[in-house]
């Protein structure tokens, strides 16, 4: 079965075609990050205005690149939430109208379910059940994933998301928006051990995270050196920050694996692209028999492939094909993954 996926929850327009037998057939992505950079962050109204210009041209591009006609598509999967309301509504309107006009079913996908399942796009892919560490600009969660739609929250951040802490600290270091990746690049020049930042909640007896105190400590450190902050000093601070965040993420993930006695860890979301995090996890899990899975770099951040995949897996799980869409739709700007 062939599923067209549409992602428009924030500042990326993603379109993809996924087939339950032949897997990912094609995908296209447009990132608005350059547009929002001048504003220092995502402007919701501008994001929506851009999505409505991009969705159909990207759909046309994916159909052409895969040489598949719209008539061959069996269902449409779109991101119903969570995310920016106006941005979600844009993808929802186009996706639902397409499904209505072709009389095919529509699948309402949870954005984070897409992220959780994104390592299934790779080879080798994990099997259910697994522990998922979801780290993005908006979320930091540990999940016990038993199967499609069976997600149990093990722990999450009590304040800032890890990606958000990366971005805010990067800004204080004078880096462009979104600075997570740039901070990581700067940290590669850093001298280990020159600074040490706190690792909040490292030894709390739960699987929750906190990053706002760490961000404040980094801000104090940056201010202290402001006058004479050489590139080297900035790199050293970046490294100390990255070290602290990744230490906490690694420790809590390992604890989650111990508690659940599971043998597979899946890392998803934008911060999953961070190489220090990847190296540390590989290093700590070497020899334990636990395997860690990362999505391909291009599927770490928002994309249409993970939405098409989630739709296809949901469709496959149903006993019979659902009826064609009646065209009525709503979005869910706030939506708890456990409510699925």
């Amino acid at each position: 079965m062939l599923v067209l996926g549409i992602e428009t929850s924030c500042d990326e327009t993603g379109i993809a075609l996924y087939d339950t037998r032949r897997r990912l057939l094609g995908h296209a992505l447009y990132s608005q990050v350059d547009m929002h950079r001048d504003y220092g962050g995502v402007v919701p109204e501008l994001a929506s205005r851009d999505h409505i210009r991009r969705v159909l041209p990207l759909v046309a591009q994916v159909l052409e690149q895969t040489n598949i006609s719209l008539e061959a598509i069996d269902a449409i999967a779109y991101t119903q939430g969570p995310g920016l309301a106006g941005a979600l509504l844009t993808g929802a309107s186009i996706g639902n109208a397409l499904a209505f006009a072709r009389n095919i079913p529509v699948l309402n996908i949870h954005h984070l379910e897409g992220h959780l399942l994104s390592p299934l796009l790779s080879d080798p892919a994990p099997d259910f059940p697994f522990v998922a560490l979801l780290v993005s600009g908006g979320h930091t969660q540990l999940m016990h994933v038993k199967g499609i739609g069976q997600y149990k929250l093990l722990g999450e951040t009590v304040d800032d998301a890890a990606g958000e802490a990366f971005d805010k600290t990067a800004k204080l270091l004078g880096l462009d928006y979104p600075g997570g990746k740039l901070l990581a690049d700067l940290a590669t020049q850093g001298q280990p051990g020159r600074f040490r930042l706190p690792r909040p909640m490292l030894n709390s007896n739960d699987l929750n995270f906190s990053f706002s105190g760490l961000k404040t400590a980094a801000a104090l450190l940056i201010n202290k050196h402001k006058q004479k902050a050489s590139t080297q000093t900035r790199a050293d601070i970046a490294l100390a920050f990255e070290d602290a965040v990744t230490d906490v993420l690694v420790k809590k993930s390992i604890t989650a694996l111990k508690i659940t006695r599971l043998q597979q860890l899946v890392v998803a979301g934008g911060v999953g692209a961070n190489s220090r995090l990847r190296q540390k996890l590989q290093h700590h899990l070497a020899g334990t028999g636990i395997v860690v899975f990362f999505p391909e770099l291009e599927f770490c951040t928002d994309n249409g492939a993970m939405i098409a995949l989630a739709g296809a897996l949901r469709l496959q799980q149903l006993n019979e094909k659902p009826p064609g869409s009646d065209g009525s739709f709503t979005i869910k700007a706030r939506w708890n993954l456990e409510d699925l």
Partner: peptide
């Protein structure tokens, strides 16, 4: 209403593209 305009436009786009 900006959101309203995009709902109408998105639905019009989807219907027209599909047909």
């Amino acid at each position: 209403s900006f959101t309203g305009l995009r709902i109408a436009c998105g639905i019009a786009q989807g219907l027209a593209f599909a047909r």
